[in-house]
């Protein structure tokens, strides 16, 4: 058999192995209930606007605490180890990555979906002064 073919097969084999092993890196979006397993997961949900948000820049700028809920009705306290993101209150959806420990979700990363800032605006009227 041609060496090229052998090498190609080896490369394909490596590819298959990688795809199989990398399945560990992949997770589904967990519900808050599922996250209680303590695994590293992503949770998608909304900010609980009726619950307090806590950001004390003076004592710990790297910690922002809020509550979020998901579609299945779960609610959880999230401790994010980042400053409070801009326009956080305006977010439509939040995705946090992290682990649940003692009923608190420790998030290392956050993504927010915000209403498009420039598209849905009303037609802006010129300032009377300007």
């Amino acid at each position: 058999m041609n060496k090229g073919v052998i090498v190609s097969l080896i490369v394909i084999l490596i590819g298959v192995i990688v795809v199989i092993t990398s399945s560990k890196d992949v997770s589904t979006y967990a519900s808050i209930q599922d996250a209680k397993s303590g695994n590293l997961v992503k949770i998608a949900g909304q900010l609980s606007k009726d619950k307090p948000m806590e950001y004390d820049a003076e004592n710990n700028p790297n910690q922002f605490v809020f509550f979020m809920h998901d579609q299945k009705g779960g609610e959880v306290k999230v401790v994010l180890n980042k400053p409070k993101p801009q326009d956080f209150e305006m977010s439509e959806q939040i995705v946090v990555t992290g682990r649940m420990t003692n009923d608190v979700f420790s998030a290392t990363d956050i993504l927010m979906k915000c209403p498009s800032k420039y598209k849905n605006e009303e037609i802006s009227i010129k300032d009377q002064n300007g």
Binding site: E58, N59, N62, Q63, S106
Partner: peptide
């Protein structure tokens, strides 16, 4: 000097006021 309750030292200490 700042330690979070639930994070490792490395995670917490990236931003300062």
């Amino acid at each position: 000097f700042l330690f979070g309750e639930v994070f490792t030292k490395k995670d917490v200490t990236k931003y300062v006021q």
